[in-house]
Design a protein around this nucleic acid. Sequence first.
DNA 1: TGCTAAGCGAGACGGTACGTCACGTCTTGCG
DNA 2: CGCAAGACGTGACGTACCGTCTCGCTTAGCA
Lengths: 201, 201, 201, 201
Amino acid sequence: MESGTAHRGNRHGRSEEARQAVLEAADDLLAERGFAGVTIEGIAARAGVAKQTIYRWWPSKVDVLLEAFTEDMAQHLTPEDHGDLGTDLRAHLARLAEFLTQSDPGAVFRALTGQAQHDPQLATRLRDDHLSAQRDRDRIPLLRAIERGELPGDLDVDVALDHLVGPVHYRVLVTGAPVPRAFTDDLVAAFLHRHQQHDQH
Amino acid sequence: MESGTAHRGNRHGRSEEARQAVLEAADDLLAERGFAGVTIEGIAARAGVAKQTIYRWWPSKVDVLLEAFTEDMAQHLTPEDHGDLGTDLRAHLARLAEFLTQSDPGAVFRALTGQAQHDPQLATRLRDDHLSAQRDRDRIPLLRAIERGELPGDLDVDVALDHLVGPVHYRVLVTGAPVPRAFTDDLVAAFLHRHQQHDQH
Amino acid sequence: MESGTAHRGNRHGRSEEARQAVLEAADDLLAERGFAGVTIEGIAARAGVAKQTIYRWWPSKVDVLLEAFTEDMAQHLTPEDHGDLGTDLRAHLARLAEFLTQSDPGAVFRALTGQAQHDPQLATRLRDDHLSAQRDRDRIPLLRAIERGELPGDLDVDVALDHLVGPVHYRVLVTGAPVPRAFTDDLVAAFLHRHQQHDQH
Amino acid sequence: MESGTAHRGNRHGRSEEARQAVLEAADDLLAERGFAGVTIEGIAARAGVAKQTIYRWWPSKVDVLLEAFTEDMAQHLTPEDHGDLGTDLRAHLARLAEFLTQSDPGAVFRALTGQAQHDPQLATRLRDDHLSAQRDRDRIPLLRAIERGELPGDLDVDVALDHLVGPVHYRVLVTGAPVPRAFTDDLVAAFLHRHQQHDQH
DNA sequence: TGCTAAGCGAGACGGTACGTCACGTCTTGCG
DNA sequence: CGCAAGACGTGACGTACCGTCTCGCTTAGCA
């Protein structure tokens, strides 16, 4: 885009080159030195970019991380359709656990969620711009199951979601315990046991 | 002990007066200005204490908050015994929700948990020194129920706990959604439905 | 040069405005509160300048004073030519005494010379960068007199200078005795008596 | 004195042991790290003495150094009587030069004189308590010469002294030039040339 | 084909907080 | 009652980043 040519200084708007360098530098610094080690000065130095260029396009360092984060999130965590609620949920929760505990964008998510505890504005932005989209994706298997008649039509989908993904986030953010497949499968089992007992077998 | 006399600087060690002033100042600053507004300089100024006195006894501001937090936590969140699992759990989860969302030490907990996402050492300390004690308290109603025969002896208590308190923490730390009594009661209902089905109806 | 425009922070380097404010503040503080009262923090506060700006350009407070001193010194203490050795020397020594005991830059000189007793590096710098230039100026009347034939060509000019200015510095730095015109005139008389005895009477 | 027994804590007055340890520690620190490296805390630590013990007996670190200095000074620099003014003066100035440039107490003298440029109170104390005694000793050869008739009775002895010792101090404190025997002998020669010309032949 | 305006790198600036050092005062318990 | 020990309030140190600013270079699109 932008005609594709690299350039330093022009009148066509921002340099895509600089933007990418900033996002990568921020990601790298987070991985290498943790959240506190991400500083505007550090990003600028590592990206070979002027501080002013960062301030021109991002209000703060969390915004840089948010943008870096956004690019990666949707690819992961879009649930597939296996035609069966239990299979869908087991697969999705397992992917969620792996995303949160293993992936680089998962690390960014944890850092941003941590920072959001200190910064209500960030919390709001994180929820509105990013988590709500993810919640929408999370909802898909349940809505499909309702359509299929596997779940009652009056199910409170949001509460159901909290029961399913809540314990996973709790382990990741609070106890630090691992989130093995057995744990996520058991969550799904509990959920199905409650809401599908009469339909089962 | 020590006959209770206040003293400022002597060979018996630290001034209890200064210690209390620091802890209170840190708590107040967290409540008023958030985690970023808690500063060693700010604590010192508000507590009427020298910076050096803080550095003498606490390695960092999170250690001050941790100590302040410890003093408050146990009082809250020790579950009572109503002789009935459902009643115990409903009461305990409601108290937990209220602690996390309404109380001052709950705010400290959220801040420390947030910071722990950036600082693995803090995460470890928080879990080992504080959360594990709370987990032990959380376990009490379940263990009592097992003794009473209300729950099967082979129940995985830790997993059960994650199912119960996980969604509450998830709402508090991630979605920011409120945690009303209906939500916690429903968590308990789901739990009882699964593990006490034979006794029900 | 540079068209003389003031500027605060740009790639051409430092702000002349800030530089002047720092030098003046340092001078003022020395005059008002003495050497111990000259503080980087104090200079910064009085000059309305950030501490970092001082550290960026001067390694220590003595360097600030040295620079402030340099600006003032040459104006004073450049000997005039009266065409006569005795007149030249009497005028020059009187000016020196007045400079050392009465003037602000004289106070800076005393402070720096005092500090140089504690700091050999400063001593070297003070001698090489500043005192040697002054010694060169001091030498002028003697060299002119040699050219005129008033003094023998083989006179050891450096030793002669020590005889002339040494007692003045001694009173200023050590005994604290006043240095009246009679004292400096007498020094000149002693000097002329020794080296011009054939011309006398 | 003090009954001679070493003691830690008693009611017989101060501990001579502690006093000596403090003076030695101060001297050592001055030699090893310079004036800025002499701190009350450092003296206390090295002497194995409590800070309070130092503050009890000395108002400041310069007082410690002053006391250490006093013990050494008189031994040096008491002029001998050779029966001849020129011999007396040449010997005395040579001893003075050696004291100032080579000896440990000479280093203390330079440090204290340096500090006196920043601290008028110290300057006064230094002059009244120490330099005036030395001036008295310096005067002896001249007074003896006046008695012997080698010098006129109306000689201004103080001015004469300044002419003799001033250039030596100037080299030591200001230019840092060496003070060889030739320099001091020449000072004496100049002095004798002026005041004894009629007696010479 | 030069003019001109926007994005860029560089980096100085006024600030705030950091964590350290030494100050001089104090309070205690031992000898 | 002098002493060792050492905690205390105070204030300056020198450093790291913050977010703002000014500058000169580079480059495209317009004149």
